[in-house]
Design a protein around this nucleic acid. Sequence first.
DNA 1: TATCTTCGTCACCGGCCGGTGACATGGACG
DNA 2: CGTCCATGTCACCGGCCGGTGACGAAGATA
Lengths: 198, 198
Amino acid sequence: MARGSTETRERIVQAAGRLLARDGYRAMGVNAIAEEAGANKVLIYRYFGGLPGLLGTLARAHPLWPRADAVVDSAPTLERALYLAVLETGRLVREQPIAREILLWELAERNEVTAELSAVRERETERLIEALRSRFSLPPFVDLPALHALLSAALSYLALRASDPAPTFTLTPSTDSDWRRIERAAAAVVRAAVGVME
Amino acid sequence: MARGSTETRERIVQAAGRLLARDGYRAMGVNAIAEEAGANKVLIYRYFGGLPGLLGTLARAHPLWPRADAVVDSAPTLERALYLAVLETGRLVREQPIAREILLWELAERNEVTAELSAVRERETERLIEALRSRFSLPPFVDLPALHALLSAALSYLALRASDPAPTFTLTPSTDSDWRRIERAAAAVVRAAVGVME
DNA sequence: TATCTTCGTCACCGGCCGGTGACATGGACG
DNA sequence: CGTCCATGTCACCGGCCGGTGACGAAGATA
């Protein structure tokens, strides 16, 4: 049924993305993906060389992380740009199931797939830092990478905890008002820290 | 061999802790634990009613999170106490493999075990917040839970990423000097934010 | 028409998983 | 002594996993 290499390839990639978003990274096996795609699992080996190849293809097909230029261009000050970048990271993790699962995956396992996924995000983040640095020419004693790492780690983690398997973190943001509190704290922190560290 | 219920129970609990610390939460199965303990897996069902019961016992036997009183008593100011509490959380996650794996587990799965583990940590954190509030009588418009959630989430996440499967986060702290940068950023943030939010 | 390649199917493998039922053993207690 | 029960052992189950070898069916090419 439905012969034709390219269509089948595409169907498998789509199915992998659907499965990752719906059932999480722990469900990503050749058997499950093949069934979801209505294809035969042998084709995963033939077309992608195995699971890592397939998931690499999937990752390359999705733009998952904040684009450096978009963030920088839309903000008038360093504080605002940093704030927006950090919040955008949290928002992506919260609203993009695939992004969320990839972060979890990277935390839980270390293999070819997660290494490549990390590298992709890393590259984009470095470009963001570089863009901020050149656009706003901040004083050298502001440790921008450290500040950015601290805040985006915070938002990512809170977003991870808030979604699907939802435990607590004293204030684990669940309602909109919870998230506003976190965002207000982050804003105050950014505003103050950039000044204080100078 | 080695008859006697209590000794065997203890041996199984010890083996579970060892396995969790060494091989991570993904390795925690009845077969693996039984082999590690040199016992028979049937006993896990007989003595603990199954895996959740065994791991609940294990968790209750380990003090894993910062004690509220210790942190509060050793700090002269609110800034200092908050800074110490947050750093201690990060340090624990970094140095206690069991704590690390429990956090990962809570992120990745939602079941009886992780629910109970979350509850334990949650209770301790609430006590910390309450102790800070009463000890230093901070103004009501400082959103202490939000600030604490933001910062401890940051340190926990960075510590999780820095250990065993070690990908990147632009600045993923690996060396001591990396961690000093993060700590300096956190200190500045705490100092500034408490003032700014007043 | 005959041949050859590509695409897809099917059946099977060994291995590990969680879980259970049947049975040996040894000690306490009558 | 005999009984009983907690303790520990062993073999086995069904199910899912990743992975592979053999085969059929469509279509291009000669």
